[in-house]
Design a protein around this nucleic acid. Sequence first.
RNA 1: GGCGGCAUAGCCAAGUGGUAAGGCAACGGCCUGCAAAGCCGAUAUUCUCCGGUUCGAAUCCGGAUGCCGCCUCCA
Length: 484
Amino acid sequence: MTIRVYNTLSRQKEAFEPMTPGRVHMYVCGPTVYDSCHIGHARSIVVFDVIYRYLMLRGYQVVYARNFTDVDDKIINRANELGISTAELAERYIDEFHADMGALNVKRPNYEPKATEHIDQIIDVVKRLIEKGYAYVVDGNVFFAVEKFNSYGKLSGRKLSEMEAGARIEIDKQKQNPMDFVLWKASKPNEPSWESPWGKGRPGWHIECSAMSIDYLGKSFDIHGGGKDLIFPHHENEIAQSEAAFGQLFVKYWLHNGFVNINHEKMSKSLGNFLMIKDILKAYHPEAIRLFLLSNHYRSPVDFNDQEIREASSALDKIYTLLERVGSVLDELPEADESGTGFGEKGTNYWHLFCNAMDDDFNTAQGIGVLFDAVRHLNRVLDEKSADPSSEEEIQAVCRDILNMGGVLGLLAESPAQYFENQRRTVLEKGSLDSETIEKLVKEREAARKAKDFQTADKIRDQLKEMNIQLEDRPDGTIWRYAK
RNA sequence: GGCGGCAUAGCCAAGUGGUAAGGCAACGGCCUGCAAAGCCGAUAUUCUCCGGUUCGAAUCCGGAUGCCGCCUCCA
């Protein structure tokens, strides 16, 4: 089985064949650290996190780099507003980013380079572009001359002539062509700046990604990812710079994720509807957010709203409920197999179906369908277990599959006990009840039931239900959980 | 104006030529003192509409309608 990926460059799915067999070098555009991360960032990062996990599981040795843009206009403006340095501002939001991503169970890339720590490499690329005649200097600014690069527009499918016709950008008189973009920006007073052959300045936005990806992954590498909005101009310009400077293919596969809308509207500053990750995490389990984000194919747009995220939460409950059931039957849950060999013969049919889905352009939505098929299968086996104690092996195998799928998706990282305990704690924090009161009521009801006083028992249950507490009578006692 | 995408049950969603996955919700049955959880079942004769290609189309082609994105900082 080969993995097939949709390549923005060719506008079709292609067989995935890394440049070096067995090794994958990938780069994803990370955030500009001037503000908190929103759900849109989360999608991009979670999607590529899953791709990263899956490639490793398929046995590839993956080198993954994701940058921080820590110097640009927005950062400078924000730092000035707050009266702190750009470095302090960047550090603050990098820390926050790591906290958010940690909560979302995102694996750290091998490298997380910052633009400001790669000024030498950036200057080096700019120099090279000037030497080769692709760039020109005007008053301490260095611009890339798009007309000199023949295949400019190949990623976004635009032609220079057409773009000029429709261009509504303010024309910069320093530019030879309105579409030329800045590689090195002369600094104004009181702006962070670095010495360069063209005077004090700072890097343009696009050049950092070229310089850093090349530095960590090579002049040609396999996968470059990011949000769809980065196709033009950011990635188009990265290609132009990199290929002009080094005369070789920059990136083999370009992958772009779709947007997150909020209540059917685009997230935008004018609407003020940015949903920050840290705020969503206050109300919902991080894995519910992941499950929600991965329920649609990564290239499609997805709409974030209360109903959707609640549904994802219910779906996640269903999986953890199953794991809890398994835990009550087996001595311990099987270990997920993250060694990368789990792909071979060990898995059952569910695991292979899941891999088939993932092989098809990382179709997590389909994969999640397989996951739920496995959940239903296992619930059925558990229902019938009393009649057939020899089913333990099957339970082990399917459960391991479920945990393996969870491992790829970055889900099911908690034990069921932890998961439900956290959920109960959240309910208690929100509500006016404390666990002692609940336990007391549960005991009273238990006593009433024993005395066959079902009227009283049901009254207590209804009373708790009104406070979003659902009772569940099990053979080994009554438990309570959050009622959706 | 240029480029691109999408339209599948009440909602979300997978499915790119072989006869409609999965989740949530609701309904019937099993289980239960009753519930809950879980399982089983029935739910789209049909995939926005109109044409065409084909033995066969949600899937390919043409057209229509509707919605959305990018072209400006943006994941």
